[in-house]
Amino acid sequence: MIAASLAVFSWKFLGYLVPEKYVSNPRFREIADAITVGLLSSLIAIQGFTTDSAVTVDSRLPALILAAGLLYLRMPFIVVIASAAALSALIRMFF
């Protein structure tokens, strides 16, 4: 448990050890911003549309569409997440 936690922590900490002169350059910041968007978008794909390394479409798709609609309407984060979970759970209960 501890070894695994240290392994994961090593990444978090390494990022803070890179000298300031490299990471504060605006060009670098733009790329780091793009990477953040890229990581989160990939995570939507993996969490929303895959099961055991295969692409699958199920009740997570309507849940994500509902989430997008609620985000567009500027609903609070917790409402968006709870609604997505509830819609998905309801669909699974009936089908």
Binding site: I44, R60, A63, A84, A85, A86
Partner: peptide, 13 residues
């Protein structure tokens, strides 16, 4: 409970 959908929606949010 749709918790997998909650996680996907969280990344979208």
């Amino acid at each position: 409970y749709g918790l997998d959908s909650a996680a996907a929606a969280a990344f979208l949010g």
